[in-house]
Nucleic acid binder design. Structure first.
Lengths: 214, 214
DNA sequence: ATTTGTGAATGGATTCACAGCG
DNA sequence: CGCTGTGAATCCATTCACAAAT
């Protein structure tokens, strides 16, 4: 009823999955959903979904479930997706270019707003209507546009340096694709996307299966 | 001393980070490292590292720390990285192409071994010496090469269908880049890489900061 | 009859703290 | 003296189970 507790970060990380699933349901013209049904779609228990949502209020109706559109709107508001977030992208290699061209961001509250690289051959060229800028201009450009979010897609060796520039540019949240843990002040959020590490954690299980077979 | 407990998955997911950090240390010619020093590099507590490693054996020396090269070898062996893992990649859009061209895999036990797409304009073209195949050939091609690991980089609408094909091809672990939770039998491992969800979990905190400022 | 919201109970993961070894 | 390895203690997350609502 009265919510004093601040929601733990695990809960915050699940909310976007709930939101996405609700968007798909909406596309399928499903109007109402129970925690049970929602959970089956995303492999989360019904109790978990209900408990997670309870950190933010009461959104369901007993005996009925949740109104898909209403719940989606609530979760999007909670996540701050009722506004558009400009994002700076640093490092326009193969990966950076794929990120810059990805349509899935724009549709979901994320707008790639500035591109940076250090390669003189890339600086000045355009991708999707945005000009790649010299990454020494990060601070000025990001401040001008009030960008608080950035994506790092540079090689590991340059990641910390770029992170430092972002922090002095006033960036408060970083999505790091570089295979390197970066150090930032405690008021800056960092999340790491690390496909190699993820694959390596799965080879562990594959290797053990091979052992079992002998 | 005697290890009966099977290591929890959280521990397995951290091992690749330890391995990577040790590789960097080795490159810097650091021979020996304490759990404290290692932890500072990757923002993990010293106790956590020691406890994690204790699931697999005793690798350190009291008063000294760990021999970097030895510990790295041990962890790589645990993760099954003493062998090379062929991987099938399905979906050669911007992202799939970036993955196919990424050098960071090959160097770390992962070899992209087959590319698939459904677009006739792409099928037959080459990337990095590999020919893109029709994705209806997944089962035959993957079985022939004994591929147990796959990466899905297709749009959300096709992800489940592709996952089903991979499962019948005998694939046992899937890295899913599609913004969609896929359903697989319980003997198949799935990990999801979801940059949009990650960004959305950070906009939550950014939005709250904005509120605080008013 | 069905499903929510939530305290209580359980189950896990992390941290503590220290004996024991080099 | 420094640092590991590890039981015990703590902290946190998930699940249970049921009263309340419709």
């Amino acid at each position: 009823m009265d919510r004093i507790e601040t929601p733990p970060d695990v809960v915050i990380r699940r909310l976007p999955l709930y939101a996405r699933s609700l968007r798909y349901l909406l596309q399928e013209d499903v109007r109402s959903v129970s925690s049970q049904e929602l959970g089956e779609r995303i492999n989360v228990t019904a109790a978990q979904i209900r408990k997670d949502l309870s950190y933010f209020g009461e959104f369901g109706k007993q005996g009925i479930g949740y109104d898909v559109e209403k719940l989606l709107n609530q979760i999007e508001r909670i996540l701050g997706l009722n506004q558009e977030w400009p994002v700076g992208l640093i490092g326009i290699g193969h990966l950076g270019e794929a990120i810059a061209r990805y349509e899935g961001f724009r549709r979901q509250g994320i707008r790639i707003a500035a591109l940076f690289d250090s390669d003189p051959n890339k600086i000045g060229t355009d991708i999707n209507g945005l000009t790649i800028q010299d990454d020494t201009h990060i601070e000025r450009a990001m401040r001008e546009q009030g960008v608080k979010l950035a994506i790092i897609a540079v090689p590991a060796t340059r990641a910390q340096e770029v992170a430092d520039m972002l922090v002095s540019a006033g960036v408060r949240a970083i999505l790091n694709y570089a295979p390197m843990v970066i150090q930032v002040p405690e008021n800056v959020w960092v999340r790491h996307i690390d496909p190699v590490a993820v694959l390596h954690s799965m080879t562990y299980y594959l290797a053990r299966e091979e052992d079992k077979e002998s």
